[in-house]
């Protein structure tokens, strides 16, 4: 068995002025892995995710990526065009607020089509069918493909955003608190959906959350962050069941058993 390493992160550091965002982060991500990033508010989770997904350029450090085509590349020195192209098809960000990831002026189907059009042939039926397929997969009613995002509930908007991102068959998906703004019962259903899709399509994912139940059911391995640094890392159930660092022990003991 030889699983491909698709991301190598070394000493990744970001400061906002004098304020630490994240510091000295190291990890490797392999194809098909789901990596969770947990930690308390302000610990640097979003900062790290933004550095990884190219939204901000870190103050220091290295990110090597290995794409499906072509060898290992230094992500941080890619030209803007290549980064944008990566984000439009090969990678995808699922934002906490679906409105940041959706174009509200175009229909549900149009939103999915926009992403597909970055990579696919210009064929209307293909866009239509793929759109419906992904709506069904994320448990939306495909008959609502022509409705506009604002006519959907928050949970459905989030499903739509996930459909849109997954439709291009991305290599890495980044999610920052994908269920953060939703009420608890909706959260659970969306997580079910994400979980079942992830099992199906072997996507690689980095997900930021402070919900340990999410982490337990969704992720393979964990980075536990505190004050901008990673205090513990490892197999998810190992970190949760046999935490080594005092902060991780505090984190796992302060919640109900999951």
């Amino acid at each position: 068995m030889n699983i491909k390493k698709i991301m190598h992160v070394e000493n990744l550091t970001h400061f906002y002025g004098n304020q630490i965002g994240c510091k000295g982060i190291n990890f490797d991500l392999y194809k098909g892995e789901i990596l969770g990033i947990v930690g308390e508010s302000g610990s640097g989770k979003s900062t790290l995710l933004k550095c990884l997904s190219g939204e901000i350029s870190p103050s220091a450090g290295k990110i090597n990526i290995s794409l499906d085509q072509g060898g290992v590349k230094d992500f941080l020195s890619l030209p803007e065009q290549e980064k944008r192209q990566l984000m439009r098809s090969m990678w995808g960000i699922v934002h906490q607020n679906p409105r940041d990831g959706l174009n509200l002026r175009i229909s549900a189907g149009g939103n999915i089509a926009e992403r597909l059009l970055n990579v696919s042939e210009k064929n209307y039926s293909f866009l239509r069918n793929t759109g419906k397929y992904w709506m069904e997969k994320t448990e939306m009613d495909p008959d609502r493909i022509d409705e506009f995002p604002l006519s959907f509930s928050g949970g459905m908007q989030q499903r739509l955003q996930i459909s849109k991102i997954l439709s291009s068959n991305p290599q890495i998906v980044f999610m920052d608190e994908p269920t953060g703004g939703l009420d608890v019962s909706v959260q659970a259903k969306i997580l079910d959906t994400i979980k079942s899709i992830v099992r199906d399509i072997n996507v690689t994912m980095i997900i930021v959350t402070h919900d340990l139940a999410v982490v337990r059911f969704l992720t393979d391995k964990l980075l536990v962050m505190k004050d901008g640094i990673v205090v513990e890392t490892g197999l998810t159930d190992r970190v949760l069941d046999d935490p080594q660092h005092s902060y991780t022990q505090l984190l796992t003991s302060s919640i109900l058993q999951v």
Binding site: M1, I3, D28, Y30, E33, A188, D220, L235
Partner: peptide, 26 residues
């Protein structure tokens, strides 16, 4: 590495814990 352990658990080692732990609603 984590993925090596995961792979081992997928194909090689099965574990029945004292208590069932599964996703809700499945």
């Amino acid at each position: 590495l984590e993925h090596q352990i995961i792979n081992l658990r997928k194909y090689f080692i099965g574990y029945v814990s004292q208590f069932l732990r599964v996703l809700p609603r499945v």
